[in-house]
């Protein structure tokens, strides 16, 4: 059977925070959130560590805005060290394991994502599920959300087009 959410280790790290194994009994919000994530959540717009998405339920649209807490300087340094040597273009499950081994949390507690806002829990979780899918598709997102200003490790052989200066281009 195809796993729907949490296909990569980075996606699974988020999934585990959404569905902690310590919870017993049926969490109705989670059931609703999953079903909304399949059809009722638009493509999230990511800006640094901020995520915006629209949840549509029973014909009504709800704007959901999340702010993912960034790694602090210590976590950031640990993360950089753990990720060194892993392909930054496509962080692997091994890269996720290296972060975990270094004690760096990949995913935040969902409760930290929209403190003080009046977003319904089911809607917030629905956007989180949708984010899991985005992270599965491109695990770089998991790192970018926690290190929004970071350039991360990169291939020294390649220069992004945006960094090719026009001054002195022709020598």
């Amino acid at each position: 059977m195809t796993r729907e959410f949490g296909v990569t280790a980075f996606g699974r790290a988020w999934l585990r925070r959404i569905e902690p194994v310590t919870v017993t009994g049926v969490d109705r919000d989670l059931v609703r959130a999953r079903s909304l994530a399949r059809r009722g959540v638009g493509d999230p717009v990511v800006d640094g560590s901020r995520v915006r998405a629209t949840v549509t339920e029973r014909g009504r649209e709800h704007a959901v805005a999340l702010a993912v807490p960034a790694w602090d300087a210590r976590e950031r340094a640990l993360a950089d060290r753990a990720l060194a040597g892993h392909d930054p273009g496509d962080p692997s499950d091994e890269a996720a394991a290296a972060l975990a081994a270094a004690g760096v949390g990949i995913a935040p507690d969902p409760a930290e994502l929209a403190p003080g806002s009046e977003v319904r829990r089911a809607h917030l979780l629905a956007v989180c599920y949708r984010l899991v899918r985005c992270i599965d598709e491109d695990p770089r997102l998991a790192i970018a959300l926690r290190a929004p200003d970071g350039r991360g490790p990169r291939d020294p052989d390649l220069i992004p087009l945006a960094e090719v200066g026009t001054a002195g281009f022709y020598g």
Partner: peptide, 22 residues
Amino acid sequence: PLPPAAHCAVTADGGHIRSALA
């Protein structure tokens, strides 16, 4: 040293050029 014009072929991913050294 080479100016960018000497090594400005865009790579297959469409988003980079190779460094002069590469």
